[in-house]
Design a protein around this nucleic acid. Structure first.
Lengths: 140, 140
DNA sequence: TTTAATTCTTACTATTCTTATCAGAATACC
DNA sequence: GGTATTCTGATAAGAATAGTAAGAATTAAA
């Protein structure tokens, strides 16, 4: 039961992109990597997924970078994590490898409850929440 | 973000031990493994952890096996999972590898909220809940 | 039009984690 | 004493994770 580095990096990166987008400036991978202490080459890969998921727009070429493609209040942690990790599959009793009697499976019961609870938390954490809580007016 | 096979096996095994304990019979590893479709040799290792955590008592020798060491209503999913997986460490921003400014870290914020939510779910799932929901009077 | 900065793409690698398997020692019932 | 069982520790295959590296494609700016 662990949050991957991928997910953490993605949350941090999206936060930086959101902050900068609200200031009407785009931010590039190197800047994000430095600000949030993320390996740059690794981050490059992750951001591609964020883009494919439609969370950010890219501006290519020199002076390029990234901006949010939606309002910060309309992007939540669930989407961000799912963008880089793929659909959440908490347990082995679900989906492809369902155990023989998943309707009678105690592990499946736990997984279902967890899934619902986690979804609920992640859906309610938006980028705007991050900005309101963590972004000082001064910095940037 | 995944529940390990370990955790699933532990939940299933504890459920079987709980059911049988309530019928005043002990159950051995082979039986549990068969009933819940768990690799026997692997399960042996896991049960040792459940024992060390004080969740079950072992009866050694022929006709041996395991019984709950507390009432089913007093053992919850959180304890069971922690017994086999060790203390839950959801994110890299916590504990040993805390990031430089964990008070300003959006990933840490998410991890904290998740942690609380997951704890809440797991603490409220007891073995008695499993028995009431899944154990028919007839079978055993 | 060249140069430099940047995104994008792909392939590779090292390390750790997970999920087992196996062999045998210790224990206790019959 | 024999057998069934828990207990212990070593080993190993495979998957997943986290990261590196090299270079192609694109575009702003000089």
């Amino acid at each position: 039961m662990k949050i991957s580095a991928k997910a953490e990096y993605a949350l941090k990166a999206m936060y930086e992109i959101a902050r900068h987008t609200q200031k009407n400036i785009n931010i590039n991978v190197s800047e994000i990597a430095q600000l949030q202490d993320i390996p740059k080459a690794y981050l490059e890969q992750l951001i591609v997924h964020l883009k494919k998921a439609g969370l950010v727009r890219s501006i290519r070429g020199a002076k390029g970078g990234y901006v949010l493609s939606r309002k910060a209040s309309e992007i939540n942690a669930n989407e961000i994590i799912e963008a880089v990790e793929g659909p959440m599959d908490l347990g082995h009793c679900i989906g492809s490898k369902a155990c023989s009697r998943s309707d009678k499976c105690v592990a499946n019961d736990v997984v279902q409850q967890l899934r619902q609870s986690i979804d609920n938390v992640l859906n309610n954490i938006t980028l705007q929440y991050f900005i309101d809580k963590y972004s000082n007016k001064e910095d940037i």
